[in-house]
């Protein structure tokens, strides 16, 4: 059962039980974006406030499995207070780790240095469970959509 423990690492279970930055920010000033995983019904509600090119605040609400919800919680911790460029960089790295790099990612084929991913590296075990990759990437795809909607 080793790979099962690799999937459900303690840090993931911790973020699932006690999600960070949970809830919704008032709109406006926040921008609100919903993300769905139609196959399994996972749902993410992302509210985000930008200050120029910095993600000033972000909260996540919704429901779903431990992977989708812990990934969302981990994401908020990584991007909150960061520049949009840094957030997009983390997004690219994360998607490369998940083996679903964007086509326009210039480093799509480069090996990933998981040490640079910090806490996000906890989700590395998901790769061995291909059907769960979409759970892990749901929050990040919702963030990408939010940034497009905000023209950021």
């Amino acid at each position: 059962m080793d790979d099962l423990e690799d999937l459900y690492r303690e840090i993931i279970l911790d973020h699932y039980r006690s999600p960070r930055n949970r809830g919704e920010l008032p709109t406006p000033p926040a921008h609100r974006t919903e993300g769905f995983n139609p196959l399994c019904g996972d749902e993410i509600v992302l509210t985000i406030v930008l200050d120029d090119d910095v993600i000033e605040d972000v909260k996540v609400d919704g429901h779903g499995c431990s992977i989708s919800q812990s990934s969302a919680s981990l994401m908020t911790g990584v991007v909150k207070g960061k520049s949009i460029d840094d957030a997009k960089g983390a997004m690219r790295s994360f998607k490369r780790m998940m083996t679903v790099a964007d086509e326009d990612d210039p480093d799509a084929d480069e090996p990933i240095d998981v040490r640079k991913l910090g806490e996000l590296a906890a989700l590395q075990g998901v790769v061995k469970f291909p059907v769960r990759i979409k759970c892990a990437t749901l929050a990040w795809n919702t963030l990408a959509q939010a940034l497009v909607e905000m023209d950021a």
Binding site: M1, G41, C65, I67
Partner: peptide, 27 residues
Amino acid sequence: EGVHAHDLAQVLDRHGVCVRPGHHCAK
């Protein structure tokens, strides 16, 4: 209680148990 159906199904898989998690096309 406290375990999402997908996580349950994933753990069950490691016990050789095949069940279906999700909304079963009956939203």
